[in-house]
Design a protein around this nucleic acid. Structure first.
Length: 417
RNA sequence: GCGGGCGUUGCCAAGUGGUUAAGGCCCCGGAUUGUGGUUCCGGUAUUCGGGGGUUCGAAUCCCCUCGCUCGCCCCA
């Protein structure tokens, strides 16, 4: 029997793992500087959390969840992490902590979809959530952090799109108006949009079907889209956010047709896309979700957050080379070699050695191929005299040395070694 | 759920009906039993994703099936 990783899953192989670590370290660094604390929640939650939280009109809930029954309880592998973090927030009474509460997370998410470029069934997100602040300065900080993070990774070809989809009240009015102008032309729209018309009419706005897009440009429809349908307080929120972004020197474009697929969003929504990805070009997506905490049974708490798709991000990053190994021990005495390795590791030096006890030439070859900076020779001669031979593998120079001198020799190497 | 492309060794591949299935990389051994990264020599696929069929003869043609991949939908 040949076993393969299941469809839509991938191994992160040893030579790729340092890329993940590099990115995660960078994120952690940036987030902690802004006082975000890491939270780790379970990879599965009760199914109801997602049907309530993410929304049962969404594709995620309708056709993409990995759900299983355990002793009569329905559980689901998390398709996203906001609902889980909010559940934890409520369960542990975090609303009593000083506001704002800033959390971040990273981990695997699961959605049953047809895999393609930039999309897997098990994928990883890194995200943050900011609770307790209604003012758009929170939206601005969150966006600023995302942009800063992507910037520091040296990404190019990114663009930030923002929109304000209103609060539940004004959005209902907007839906009515959209429906009324679309209705006369309804039969010209694609079959998917016919379904959307009933279930979630705003989703028609970001349909990628060429015909639908043209229909949306008809003057009578376009005028409804481009008019600010949102209520005064939502407009004020949006205007203020734009001022913050301007002050922070963050470039953005307003995209009136940007609608996010998760039911919990209100007011601000945004997306960061890259021209260097395939058709799944969103690296980061997020927005404000003021109603969610109370929907899930907690006290009314405003919140805003985003998530970044790790696999998509990694495909865009140029990452520095892995640090080379400091020392490779060449020896025909395995016991002494292992002992030496353990001593040097204790001093903070990275050390490997040959376990096959091959001849010196082979061990030297291995030392080279491993990419070690030094070969440290511990043979009969060295054992007799109580010394070691340290060979610089890039210059070929070697010297007799005592164990005490090793750290100094190794750490004094210039950085561009 | 619906479309397109592709499956030859650990990896990248040549081969499109005719004897033992090129080549390159990696790996292993030797030249070189205490000195590498360069070089040279040698080794590693009873078998072409799997099953069935056509044929004297199939990686190559036909049918079925499985897997991967890209796109639609949707999302990070």
């Amino acid at each position: 029997m040949n076993y393969k990783a299941p469809k839509g899953t991938k191994d992160i192989l040893p030579y790729e793992a340092h890329i993940w670590k590099y990115i995660e370290d960078k994120a952690q660094n940036i987030l902690e500087k802004a006082n975000y604390k890491e939270i780790r929640t379970p990879v599965f939650e009760s199914t109801e959390l997602f049907t309530r939280g993410v929304g049962d009109s969404t594709d995620i809930v309708n056709k993409e969840m990995y759900t299983f029954l355990q002793k009569g309880r329905s559980l689901t592998l998390r398709p996203e992490n906001t609902a889980g973090v909010v559940r934890s927030f409520i369960e542990h009474g975090m609303h009593r902590l000083p506001s704002p509460l800033k959390l971040w997370y990273k981990g695997a998410m699961f959605r049953y979809e047809r895999p393609q470029a930039g999309r897997q069934r098990q994928f990883h997100q890194l995200g943050l959530e900011l609770f307790g602040i209604e003012n758009p300065c929170a939206d601005a900080e969150v966006i600023q952090i995302a942009m800063n993070f992507l910037d520091e990774l040296g990404l190019s070809g990114l663009s930030l799109e923002i929109n304000n989809i209103g609060c539940p009240e004004c959005r209902n009015e907007y839906k009515k108006q959209i429906k009324s102008v679309i209705k006369p032309k309804l039969e010209d729209f694609c079959p998917d949009c016919l379904v959307r018309f009933e279930k979630n009419p705003l989703r028609i706005l970001d349909c990628k079907n060429e015909k639908c897009r043209q229909l949306l440009c008809l003057p009578e429809i376009d005028s409804v889209i481009s008019r600010d349908f949102i209520c005064e307080s939502c407009v004020a929120h949006f205007e203020e956010l734009k001022e913050y972004l301007k002050t922070l020197n963050i470039k953005y474009t307003v995209n009136k047709k940007l609608v996010r697929g998760l039911d919990y969003y209100n007011k601000t929504v945004f997306e960061i896309t890259s021209t260097n990805l395939g058709s799944q070009n969103a690296v980061c997506g997020g927005g404000r979700y003021d109603p969610l905490v109370s929907t899930l049974g907690g006290p009314q708490t405003p919140a805003v957050g985003w998530a970044i798709g790790m696999e998509r991000l990694i495909s865009l990053c140029k990452v520095p080379e892995e640090k080379p190994l400091d020392v490779f021990i060449v020896s025909d005495n395995k016991k002494q070699a292992l002992k030496l390795a353990s001593e040097l590791r204790g001093l903070g030096i990275s050390v490997d050695l040959d376990f096959l006890a091959r001849k010196f030439a082979k061990q030297m070859e291995k030392a080279s191929k491993t990419g070690a900076k030094f070969a440290l020779i511990l043979g009969e001669e060295e054992l007799k005299t109580g010394t070691l031979t340290l060979k610089n593998l890039s210059t070929g120079k070697q010297e007799s040395i005592s164990i005490k001198e090793i750290p100094q020799r190794i750490f004094s190497l210039p950085l561009n070694f």
